[in-house]
């Protein structure tokens, strides 16, 4: 959700922020190899909201998500998680679940071992129980003892999402989570994202499918020329260019 818009909307509704939003970007810019990718982006995601991010290939969606996930330092501007900068604060990584283009899985290890490793890194008190529940959630409980490298791409994607969410983070950042999933898998993920939203998680994900974004998200933004545009504006702009 665009920061200024969401704030003004909430102010109008008489809502006051008592805690900082889960995710906030202020004047976020990123230059890669001399080319500006992101240009002074302001955005805020509130708890219980899903934001879908669309854009052409190379528009900078992954760069933006990596900045938001604290994995890439902005050239200028700030990223804040609950009001705190994640730079040099690995303890804050507990707040975020990030799944990227690649699976982040150790292919030699089994599904169970991959999730157990992630759960232990997050310092969960009962990793085995949590992992068993998560494997059931992503329908991989029957494949728990198979190496991740033996999985089909869709199964690997499910496991990757489970790895990102094993510690039940309040802020979820997914880069093209629907890719590699078949039709039932996509439906399953849509339902899961909606459940997470109901549970108060703040979610941002990228997709190339506008319809899917509209089905799942509260708001869809299009990344174009390094700026975020509400989808309706973006469509109007492209229509104007076409005309």
């Amino acid at each position: 959700m665009l920061g200024s818009q969401s704030l003004s909307r909430r102010s109008a509704a008489g809502l006051l922020e008592t805690t900082p939003p889960p995710l906030e970007a202020r004047q976020l810019s990123r230059v890669l190899q001399g080319r500006p990718i992101l240009n002074r982006i302001d955005m805020t995601i509130a708890a219980g909201q899903i934001l879908a991010l669309t854009g052409l290939n190379g528009a900078g969606k992954t760069t933006l998500l990596r900045c938001l996930a604290g994995r890439l330092c902005p050239t200028t501007g700030d990223v804040l998680w609950y009001g705190n900068s994640p730079t040099r604060r690995p303890d804050l990584n507990r707040l975020v679940g990030f799944a990227g283009h690649e699976s982040f899985l150790y292919l030699e290890l089994t599904a169970m071992e991959n999730l157990l490793f992630a759960a232990r890194m997050h310092g969960l008190s009962d990793p085995q129980t949590t992992v068993n529940q998560m494997l059931a959630k992503v329908c991989l409980d029957k494949h728990a003892h198979q190496p991740a490298g033996h999985f089909a791409k869709g199964m690997r994607q499910r496991l990757s999402l489970a790895r990102a969410l094993v510690h039940d983070p309040p802020l979820v950042i997914f880069d093209e989570p629907f890719s590699s999933l078949d039709a039932p898998g996509r439906q399953w993920l849509e339902d899961w994202l909606k459940d997470l939203r109901t549970a108060g998680r703040a979610i941002i994900f990228t997709t190339h499918e506008a319809e899917q974004a509209q089905r799942v998200a509260n708001e869809t933004l299009d990344l174009r020329g390094g700026r975020l545009l509400p989808v309706s504006n973006s469509i109007a702009a492209s229509q104007m260019r076409a005309a």
């Binding site: 994995r71 990584n93 990227g100 690649e102 982040f104 899985l105 150790y106 992630a118 890194m121 997050h122």
Partner: peptide
């Protein structure tokens, strides 16, 4: 570096 696991490692609450 396989499957960008290094990135995942830096996403855990562990110090370098």
């Amino acid at each position: 570096r396989d499957e960008s696991c290094w990135q995942a490692l830096l996403l855990y609450p562990v110090t370098l």
